[in-house]
Design a protein around this nucleic acid. Structure first.
Length: 496
RNA sequence: GGCGCUAUCGUCUAACGGUUAGGACGGAGCCCUCUCAAGGCUCAAAUACGGGUUCGAUUCCCGUUAGCGCUACCA
């Protein structure tokens, strides 16, 4: 295949003289941004940042039938939330001239031909003797004059003329999957232009990748076998193919490819956002699916990931996102999120929690949130957990609870009453600081001749409305004297 | 059907051809403790199957099985 090869134009060179990579993420706006796409974006981004290259976002919107504005919005929403950014942005629909010129050039070189077979008419002939359809009879070898003539009155698709002389393997080395080869005898004459003159994905993608001087194509493994066609197109258009790195796919627990239809919103990036994931934790989780730093690190900062990321660290088998009917999130994602929540400075965590608190209907002030945050940070896994973990800090009325809840272990109603009445007394006088509260209440327990746990439980339930809550003294401190006394009085009423 | 890719605990993964096959999540238990968490410790849990090559295969080769992908005028 002696296709002409023009010089490859590198985008830029850094001072060491090494090529700076240019990578792209090219979603098509035909649905929301799903987590598999997000991971592809992230891996591209990491590769670009690791090598000080360029991250390009290209919207592959050549399928006019299926594109929607809503989908486009959803993709940007998801990408913006990830907070990684990109350096250049292109819309494929604005580059149709380039695609047509590329197709024309390939045609003029005799490497493509017109196929006048009516659409949908080839199915019966599709499965050939050995199971592979290669081309429609009579079209590939039609004389140029006849083709030109019929082109004036008949619609046609432009097909790539896959070389057929002798056995010939197309080869490339994938950065993840290694040496790949496929015989041209197993590659059909695929379409370049549709009968309405619009470019197919294969043509548009390759024309743009070449024009944008993409150096590394990092994409899902579902494109691995398409790559042979792409290499054919690159060469036919006079370009050296870029490097390829294919990523193992993200699959559902049943092994099926993640899809909107089958798996619903659990595969949408915005679901993770809305359910209180930190973007950073989400990125961290996705990175660990199909890639490993090869040491035992799991929780990694953005910079850790940039530093550690290599194509060699990517593995070859599909990764299961372990969600279920009951729980849409992989337990490891939730754990990582909790880890990142705990690692966040209080000030920043409080800021992230605030909108979720307000969404839960709390009258939450920034300052109050800042006080509450240290008390709940080790007790929440998702930002949305603020709704159940901090309700009694923000709501005037406690959620209803049973009087029995106030009764301590190995105690009775009388003990609960005694504790609460005594607490009412001492809490009226004590300094509302952690240390003073602790000293006072421990002393009170001793004075009443009961265990500290028996002392603390009725108070906890009285002020929080439940047995499970943050440590008592800090909680009392943040709640303040008035609220505590009032709630203890209400508890006493409840017991009578 | 054809072509391609893949195969280590339930899940994510580590292991120059030589390890008691390591770590993490989740599970179980213990410790700590004012509850719940967090933290610490311990336990259960894997090389799909069959052949080779080799002194020695999780690792290399072949086959089987299973899964996935591509096989569109979708991307």
């Amino acid at each position: 295949m002696g296709h002409c090869r023009t010089a490859w134009k590198p985008a830029s060179t850094c001072y060491t003289g090494l090529l700076m990579p240019r990578v792209r993420f090219a979603p098509s706006p035909t649905g929301f941004l799903h987590i598999g796409s997000a991971r592809t974006f992230i891996f591209n981004w990491l590769y670009a940042r690791h090598h000080h290259g360029t991250m390009i976002l290209r919207i592959d919107d050549t399928d006019v039938e299926r594109n929607t504005q809503q989908s486009l919005d959803s993709i940007f929403e998801g990408l913006n939330w990830l907070d990684l950014g990109w350096d250049e942005l292109y819309h494929q629909s604005e580059r149709l001239d380039l695609h047509r010129r590329t197709a024309q050039a390939i045609f003029e070189r005799g490497l493509a031909y017109r196929d006048f077979t009516p659409a949908g008419n080839e199915d019966s002939e599709r499965s050939g003797a050995n199971g592979t359809w290669l081309c429609n009879p009579g079209m590939r070898d039609m004389p140029r004059e006849e083709s030109d003539h019929r082109a004036k009155i008949e619609p046609f698709v432009l097909r790539f003329r896959v070389p057929r002389e002798g056995p010939c393997d197309i080869r490339f080395r994938d950065a993840v999957y290694g040496e790949q080869s496929k015989s041209t005898a197993d590659i059909e004459d695929f379409a370049l232009l549709r009968s309405d003159g619009t470019p197919t994905y294969h043509l548009a993608s390759c024309a743009d990748d070449a024009d944008l001087r993409i150096s590394h194509i990092i994409r899902g493994q579902d494109h691995l076998t398409n790559t042979f066609k792409h290499i054919l197109i690159f060469r036919a258009a006079g370009h050296e193919p870029p490097e390829f790195a294919h990523l193992p796919l993200l699959v559902a627990p049943d092994g099926a490819k993640l899809s909107k239809r089958r798996h619903g919103p659990v595969v949408s990036v915005t679901t993770y956002r809305d359910r209180g994931f930190l973007p950073h934790a989400f990125v961290n989780f996705l990175c660990l699916l199909g890639w490993s730093p090869k040491d035992d690190r799991e929780q990694m900062s953005r910079q850790d990931l940039v530093d550690a990321f290599t194509l060699e660290g990517i593995n070859r088998s599909n990764a299961v996102v372990n969600f279920t009917e009951d729980d849409p999130f992989d337990p490891k994602a939730v754990w990582l999120n909790a880890e990142h929540i705990r690692a966040l400075p209080v000030e920043e965590l409080a800021g992230r929690l605030l909108p979720f608190a307000r969404a839960a209907g709390f009258r939450a002030e920034a300052e109050k949130m800042r006080q509450v945050t240290p008390l709940i940070r080790e007790r929440i896994k998702l930002l949305t957990d603020v709704a159940t973990a901090a309700d009694f800090f923000f709501q005037d009325a406690l959620a209803p609870y049973l009087a029995e809840e106030l009764i301590p272990q190995k105690g009775d109603k009388a003990m609960a009453l005694k504790v609460l009445q005594h607490a009412l007394e001492v809490l009226s006088a004590v300094d509302f600081t952690h240390a003073a509260l602790e000293n006072t209440l421990r002393a009170a327990a001793q004075q009443l001749g009961i265990k500290t746990g028996q002392m603390f439980l009725p108070i906890r339930v009285a002020v929080c409305g439940r047995k499970t809550a943050p440590p008592l003294f800090e909680t009392l401190e943040v709640l303040g004297r008035e609220t505590c006394l009032q709630r203890i009085r209400q508890a006493i009423e409840k017991l009578r």
